[in-house]
Design a protein around this nucleic acid. Structure first.
Length: 433
DNA sequence: TCTGGGGTCCTAGGACCC
DNA sequence: TCTGGGGTCCTAGGACCC
């Protein structure tokens, strides 16, 4: 091997671990974190996993049993998780080179030529993050990212810690044959079914497949996965900060409603809100949108499920919230079914271009002349997200903090913890006696 | 009663051009 | 009047990830 070792650092039960940072009494208790609207389980502490609760389970289906078992539930608190994630990532970036943030709770880093040295640094990095942030990590090293993912899965099953591919393989030469093909990074449900039909059922089977045949039958993506399983690095990530640095090619803001809504007025308010949210992120990354797409959908769990979407091309690419919200709301009249009970809507901004380099033929700036977006952004920074907006009729704050409006369709978050690192009024309180 | 919210990349196929 | 084949661009849809 060339010594280009990949290090994968992945937090254990990240959201659940975050909830414990300011609530040490939750340690060793079974704990689950729920998705928006308190819908599904999205993170489980080790104790909750041992109770047999799986990810993605609808909370309403297991609530009775779970509460009987002493399981504690929390609504997801992304503000807290994002803040802890940033701190954790900074500590890791200081320990090893080449950080690529892959998701809120995991990143790839580069190891050193000397595996011994890499191991020592990884051990120290794990202790630093545990002591400094309070988040336990699993750290895996391997010659490819896909193998690092395999190692990480494997040692998480053993309770976490640190693991290395070469070491693991020398101890258990047939380890890939004992891992289901569906657990391989890049192999989802559909591919699993198709592969099984070809008698490829384990990671070992896939590693022994002929890459060019796989490319023929599937795609270049799966071919790369095969090569990676064979120890040949083939997958590149955009090595930008995936959480706040990158310029996205498409921005979406969508939500399930707290309860179904019917009719144009409510739907317009929701879509307008999401459009303004999306435009905030658009301005933050310095882009203009050339297209606005809106989708609305009823519940996919009902017989009469319907989902509609409609787009509007902006002849002058825009980033100001008025233009974008108006375009988004404008798609609704021709899509809406006046009797349907909608449970979800979303706004997508596409055909993004760089605002700084965009000029029209006569050299004037595009639709960003009134400065309203900038004022809104400043107000939102100062007074909290969503404190100011357009078309918020009848949505005065009833929630705990300013940004929680009283609209019926707003998210349900009945088990929300404090945002102790980003809100002064929700700081943790320590008492000394 | 009650089932998340973002993203990315690839491929196939149509439109158009020479 | 007749018309092949290849390149490129775009979009919709599929599949995956956390």
């Amino acid at each position: 091997m060339s010594g280009r070792m990949f290090v994968l650092a992945d937090a254990d039960s990240f959201y659940a671990s975050c909830e414990r940072v300011f609530h040490p009494e939750l340690a060793r208790r079974p704990l689950v974190v729920l998705s928006n609207n308190d819908g599904c389980v999205v993170s489980r502490s080790r104790e909750a996993k041992l109770l047999g609760i799986s990810n993605g389970t609808p909370w309403f289906k297991i609530r009775g049993q779970a509460q009987h078992d002493g399981v504690i539930a929390r609504s997801s608190n992304y503000e807290l998780y994002a803040s802890l994630s940033r701190r954790m990532m900074r500590l890791m970036a200081a320990a090893l080179p080449g950080q690529e943030i892959y998701s809120i709770d995991e990143c790839f880093l580069r190891g050193f030529q000397d595996p011994q040295r890499t191991r020592i640094v990884c051990t120290r990095m794990r202790e630093t993050v545990l002591q400094g942030i309070g988040i336990p990590l699993t750290i895996a090293t391997a010659p490819t990212r896909t193998l690092a993912k395999i190692v990480s899965h494997y040692i998480k099953h053993q309770g976490g810690g640190i693991g290395d591919w070469d070491l693991l393989r020398s101890q258990e030469p047939d380890v890939l044959d004992r891992i289901d093909v569906s657990e391989v990074w890049g192999v989802g449900r559909r591919l699993t079914r198709k592969l099984q039909g070809m008698s490829i059922t384990t990671a070992g089977d896939l590693a022994r497949a002929d890459p060019s045949r796989i490319r023929h039958l599937f795609s270049v993506l799966l071919q790369r996965t095969v090569l990676e399983l064979q120890g040949i690095p083939s997958i590149e990530l955009d090595d930008f900060d995936a959480i706040d640095g990158t310029r996205k090619q498409q921005l979406m803001c969508s939500r399930m409603f707290g309860q179904p809504i019917t009719g144009l007025p409510d739907l317009s308010a929701a879509v307008s809100t999401y459009a303004q949210q999306a435009s905030i992120r658009l301005r933050k990354q310095g882009s203009l949108a050339g297209m606005v797409t809106v989708f609305i959908a009823t519940s996919p769990f009902n017989q009469d499920y319907q989902s509609r979407s409609g787009s509007i091309i902006l002849t002058d690419p825009a980033d100001d919230p008025l233009t974008i919200a108006r375009a988004a709301v404008g798609t609704l009249p021709r899509m809406i079914d006046p009797h349907a009970r909608y449970v979800r809507a979303g706004v997508m901004l596409g055909a993004l271009t760089d605002a700084a380099s965009y000029t029209t033929f006569d050299g004037m700036d595009a639709k960003r002349d009134n400065g309203l977006g900038t004022i809104l952004d400043q107000a939102n920074r100062k007074f909290g997200l969503q404190s100011v907006g357009i078309g918020w009729a009848g949505m005065k704050g009833k929630g705990r903090a300013r940004q929680e409006t009283g609209a019926a369709w707003n998210m349900k978050r009945h088990h929300l913890s404090n945002r102790g690192t980003t809100r002064w009024d929700e700081l943790a309180v320590a008492k000394a006696r």
